[in-house]
Amino acid sequence: MIWLGIDTANSPLSVAIVKDGELLIEESSMMKVNHSLRAMPAVEEVCRKTSISPSEIDAIAVSEGPGSYTGVRIGVTIAKTLAWTLGKPLYGVSSLKSLAMNGQLYNGLLCPLFDARRSNVYSAIYRMAGEELVSVMEDQHCALAELLEQLKEMKEPILFIGEDVKLHEQSIREQLGEQAKFASFAVNVPRASSVISLAMRAEQADSVHSFTPQYRRITEAEVNLVKKEPTNE
């Protein structure tokens, strides 16, 4: 069984191939380069280096968001097109959950986080229970201050994961003090192998055609439209 995994949900890029439960190759980069330029070349490269032809791929796993709208869409578009045209199953995995996998050896709460600008973040809380990652707070788009307040009440050590954590490290330390733990940069890299590993335990997408990113946020245009709608009051 050959799995192709893709994560382009934020500025890092990661692609991987897992064959019969073994990671054959994983290529990750934290460089802020356009995913549209390098995502497909990276997929082609991992296939070439492992001498796997596209038709040999048995399943495709993709990071479905949240994250950069454009980034998520590039990964999802590539994954659903491959899955559809190769006639193989597609699996969507939360970008936050797969990042949380980097903290699977940590005994405490895991808080993966992506910056969403204007003091907002995409974040969630997970913890390991046996060999499984379980959700404590589901993926959401929220104000950082709000997230920190919720975390403070949990009164447990929390490991923050993600390359955007450094943008907010000061606020996090101020709010949470010793409760907050920070990991090495080595743990901040999203890994397509984690996307595959989670996909292996997940349900496949019902329909490849209707598979869409999990933005966790409606567009500004839709927000404004709701504001404009007259109320009956």
Binding site: A39, V43, P54, T77, I78, A79, L82, T85
Partner: peptide, 10 residues
Amino acid sequence: NAAKAFAFAN
């Protein structure tokens, strides 16, 4: 990106 994936797959 759909075109690139389709071209690669086929």
